[in-house]
Amino acid sequence: MMTSISDNCCRCKKCEQICPVSAVDIDNNNISDDCIKCYHCGAICPQKAINAEYLPGTVTQNNISPYDFELLMQQRRSHRKFSNRKVAPEILTEFINHLRFSPTASNLQTLNFTVVTNQDKIQEVNNLTIDTLTGAYNSLNAFTKPLIRILLGQHRLVQMEQSKRKFLNKKAVNKQMITYNAPAMIIVHSPTSPVGMPCHDANIWTGMAILYAELLDLCTCINGYIVNAAKRNNKVKRTLNIDQSETVYAALLIGYPHNKFENTVGRNLPLIKTID
């Protein structure tokens, strides 16, 4: 919580008007316990009168055109073949530090990051994930199918059977089907809590990260299998030295690309409903 307003306050009350929780009270020189540390007040204050950490310079409009951003979105692809070039841990640390300005769902800023460049550890996560999910898929059998059909319906049962078939078929031909020999991996995790929205925060961060990586000539692959396995098997977190009180919300494979995608291909247009 921010607690003070300095004497150079010009009483413009822009901070009061921008505060999403009405925590700022200029007349009484007070910021209440309702403060969520979004720092909108500090960002808008012309006098820098709020006790926030101010970075050098001021915010100015960037020179990225909408067209440039559209091209960036179009060129981004999930990579499952990485070059042999290693990614230095300090580059990944700087990468994560720069992404601290990523938006959050509730501004609690609870996300923690584990960076893995040790190939033995990455291989162990690959094997643990395959074993864990194979066990989960094998629980879909002649005994459980009737119950799933009753509880979830025939359509959902068919989807689960298709998912099982694809996973086991892929496992049979590719023993690196989880981590794909990636040179590095970023695991996003947070203390488990009934308040806040760390799952949404992790999803937002990951979306920002895969675009930022493109600008650094890095390539990425979001890996839901590892997240799924970490929820089912505590050995995954132990392997990564993640406290058992925390939940893994995202896993990102990252490295330098082996392939260059030459063409932009289409995607389905979304269904859009407008209420005016």
Rank of each mutant, 00 (worst) to 15 (best):
T129K: 05
A229V: 09
E262V: 06
R76E: 01
E161W: 08
R11L: 07
L271A: 11
S163V: 08
I44Y: 04
N259Q: 10
M177Y: 08
L271F: 10
N234V: 06
K121T: 15
S193I: 04
I26H: 00
F261K: 02
E16S: 02
P183G: 06
A49L: 02
H200M: 14
L151T: 11
S32W: 11
T134Y: 07
A230W: 08
K13V: 03
A230F: 04
H200R: 09
I130G: 05
R85E: 14
F143A: 11
D33T: 12
H189K: 04
N174A: 05
Q109C: 08
T114N: 03
I226K: 06
I26S: 02
Q154V: 08
K235E: 15
R11S: 14
P198I: 09
R11N: 15
Y67K: 14
S163Q: 13
N223G: 00
E124H: 13
I186T: 10
I96L: 07
A43S: 13
P46E: 01
I186W: 04
P191R: 10
N30P: 00
L92A: 04
D120R: 11
K48M: 03
T129D: 02
L140N: 03
N268R: 15
T264Y: 12
A23T: 02
Q61V: 11
K235N: 13
V21G: 03
Q17R: 15
P191D: 10
Q123I: 12
N263G: 02
D217C: 05
K171Q: 15
N112L: 14
M160H: 09
K164R: 15
I122L: 11
N29P: 01
K121H: 07
A43Y: 06
H200F: 14
I122N: 00
P257D: 09
K273I: 01
T93G: 07
V265Y: 15
Q109A: 08
Q17P: 00
K237F: 03
S32L: 10
K171F: 07
G255D: 01
L71R: 12
L92I: 10
Q47M: 12
P191S: 09
K86N: 10
Y249G: 01
S163K: 12
C10N: 14
D243T: 10
N126L: 06
T58P: 01
V236M: 01
G196K: 09
K171V: 13
P66G: 05
